Amino acid sequence: MAYKSLLTVMTETRLSRAALNQIIALAEVQDAHAEALCLGVDRSQTGYYYAGANALILQETLSRANAEAAGVHEFAQDVLRKSGVRWSSESGVAQIADIGRHVARRAMFSDLVILPRPYGQDRDAEAEPIVEAAMFEGHAPVLLVPDDAQPLTKPETVLIGWNESPEAMRAIRRALPFLKQAELARIVVIDPPRHGPDRSDPGGMLSQMLARHGVKCEIDVLSKTMSRVSDILNRHATDTEADMIVMGAYGHSRFREAILGGATRNMLEQASVPVFLAH
Results as ranks from 00 to 15, higher is better:
Ala133Arg: 02
Leu152Pro: 02
Gln150Asp: 09
Ala134Ser: 12
Lys154Trp: 09
Arg117Cys: 07
Pro166Leu: 09
His102Gly: 00
Pro116Trp: 14
Met108Leu: 14
Gln95Met: 11
Ala94Trp: 00
Lys154Glu: 12
Lys180Asn: 04
Tyr119Asn: 03
Glu156Tyr: 09
Gly120Glu: 08
Pro146Arg: 15
Glu132Val: 14
Ala133Glu: 00
Ile114Glu: 05
Leu144Asn: 05
Ser110His: 02
Pro141Ile: 05
Tyr119Lys: 08
Met108Val: 02
Phe178Asp: 03
Pro151Arg: 14
Gly100Ser: 09
Ile172Met: 11
Val131Thr: 13
Arg123Glu: 06
Lys180Cys: 11
Ser110Asp: 03
Ile99Leu: 13
Arg105Thr: 13
Pro116Gly: 11
Met169Arg: 09
Asp124Pro: 02
Gly120Asp: 08
Gln150Phe: 07
Gly120Ile: 15
Leu159Gly: 04
Gly138Leu: 01
Ile114Cys: 03
Ile160Phe: 00
Asp98Gly: 02
Val158Asp: 02
His139Arg: 15
Ala133Asn: 01
Leu179Thr: 10
Ser110Gly: 07
Asp147His: 13
Asp147Gln: 14
Arg123Trp: 00
Met169Tyr: 04
Ala171Glu: 03
Ile172Tyr: 02
Met135Phe: 00
Pro155Trp: 13
Asn163Lys: 13
Glu128Asn: 06
Pro141Met: 08
Asp122Gln: 15
Arg170His: 13
Glu167Leu: 07
Asp111Val: 06
Leu159Ala: 12
Leu112Ala: 08
Met135His: 03
Leu112Glu: 07
Ala97Phe: 10
Gly120Cys: 11
Pro118Thr: 05
Thr153Gln: 09
Ala97Gly: 10
Pro177Met: 08
Arg117Thr: 14
Ile96Asp: 09
Val103Arg: 11
Leu176Glu: 08
Ser110Glu: 01
Lys180Gly: 01
Glu137Asp: 13
Arg105Ala: 15
Leu152Met: 15
Lys180His: 03
Asn163Val: 11
Ala134Cys: 07
Arg106Val: 00
Thr157Val: 15
Gly120Lys: 07
Arg170Asp: 04
Glu132Trp: 05
Glu167Asn: 12
Pro129Leu: 10
Ser165Lys: 10
Ile96Cys: 04
Leu143Asn: 06
Ala133His: 02
Pro166Thr: 10
Arg105Glu: 13
Arg174Val: 01
Leu112Ile: 04
Asp148Ile: 03
Phe178Ser: 05
His139Asn: 15
Val131Trp: 01
Phe178Ala: 10
Met169Phe: 12
Ser165Asp: 10
Gly138Lys: 03
Val113Gln: 01
Lys154Leu: 10
Asp122Pro: 01
Ile160Arg: 03
Ala149Val: 13
Glu128Lys: 08
Ile130Ser: 03
Val131Ile: 13
